Computed example of a mutant assay.
Amino acid sequence: MTTDTELKKEIAYNIRAALPKATSYEDYRKLVLALAESGDTTGDKTVSYINYTLLNNRRMKRWDKTLKITDEQMKGIKAFSGKVIWLVLTESWCGDAAHTIPAMNKIAELNPGIDLKILQRDEHPKLMDHFLTNGARSIPKLIMLDANSLEVKGEWGPRPAVAGKMVAHYKKEHGKLTAEFREELQNWYNKDKGQETFNELITLLALENVGNSANL
């Protein structure tokens, strides 16, 4: 049986092994754009994944231009005084990622203490398996790391809590997600305009900020 100490060492090893392969948000956007234009995708080369990648490129392009931070949210972002890496596991075909990663980037752009880095999930299964959601490799998964020690300080994902409850309730009632429900979920994201994602990630930063202050 793996001890807590051994598990922490294993996680640390997998993080250090994966980090050099992580890309910036700018490079990730270039990748998704190139995939969309060439009719390709990350992960399995299925027709549905290719179509999702094409759709997600349009979604991310829209959110990059239209996401708005409120004055109150800005205060929370600017109040963060630590230095962290937001390491995100995702794939170009992931619908939740197309709505939430642009929000992550918007926050990271506003505070130099946040370094957003992106990895493809299927290229890093060992790391992904340390951050499962109800036993599944659900994405996107944001892992917040201390920028110096690379210690795991928190995690977020694969979607805002409200959307997560919608998914859980529908699965309980129907067994699986249908095309109709996926459209309903996308409509929720469109109406929310990133606000739930912003608020939850700012809360994550606030918890880390309290920890940093306690150690002063």
Rank of each mutant, 00 (worst) to 15 (best):
Y170T: 09
K176Y: 13
V162L: 05
Q186K: 09
S138Q: 05
E183K: 15
G175I: 06
E173Y: 03
H169C: 04
N148S: 09
K176T: 11
R182Q: 11
G164W: 02
L132P: 00
E151N: 13
K141D: 00
H174F: 15
A168H: 10
E155A: 05
N148E: 11
K172L: 02
V162S: 12
Y170W: 14
P160I: 03
H169W: 03
N187L: 07
L142S: 05
L142P: 01
F181Q: 08
K141Q: 10
N148T: 09
S138T: 15
L127R: 06
G157V: 04
M144W: 00
G135R: 01
A147R: 00
K171P: 05
H169M: 11
I139M: 11
R182N: 15
A179W: 00
P140C: 00
A163T: 06
D129C: 07
E183A: 14
K172R: 10
D129E: 14
D129T: 08
E180A: 11
A168V: 07
R182V: 09
G135D: 06
A163D: 10
L132W: 06
G164L: 09
L145Q: 02
P158C: 09
K126N: 10
L145M: 02
E183M: 09
G135S: 13
M144I: 05
D122L: 13
H130Y: 15
P160C: 09
D146A: 02
E123S: 15
H130G: 01
T178K: 09
M166P: 10
A179E: 13
L185C: 04
A136C: 07
A179I: 14
P160E: 11
I143V: 09
D122A: 05
H174K: 15
R159N: 10
K176G: 03
D129N: 15
T178F: 05
H169T: 15
H130Q: 08
A136F: 11
F131L: 02
A161I: 14
I143T: 03
R159I: 02
I143H: 02
M144N: 00
M128C: 08
A163W: 05
D122V: 13
S149V: 03
A147P: 01
A168P: 04
N187T: 12
H124S: 06
V162E: 15
R159Y: 06
A161Y: 07
M166I: 07
T133Q: 00
P140D: 06
M128A: 15
G164A: 11
G175E: 04
Y170P: 11
D146N: 15
S149A: 14
P140G: 02
P125L: 13
I143M: 05
W156R: 10
Y170G: 05
E183G: 12
A147G: 06
H130I: 01
D129A: 08
V162R: 14
L145E: 01
K172F: 00
L132F: 04
K176H: 13
L127Y: 01
R137I: 06
I139D: 08
P125Y: 01
S138I: 03
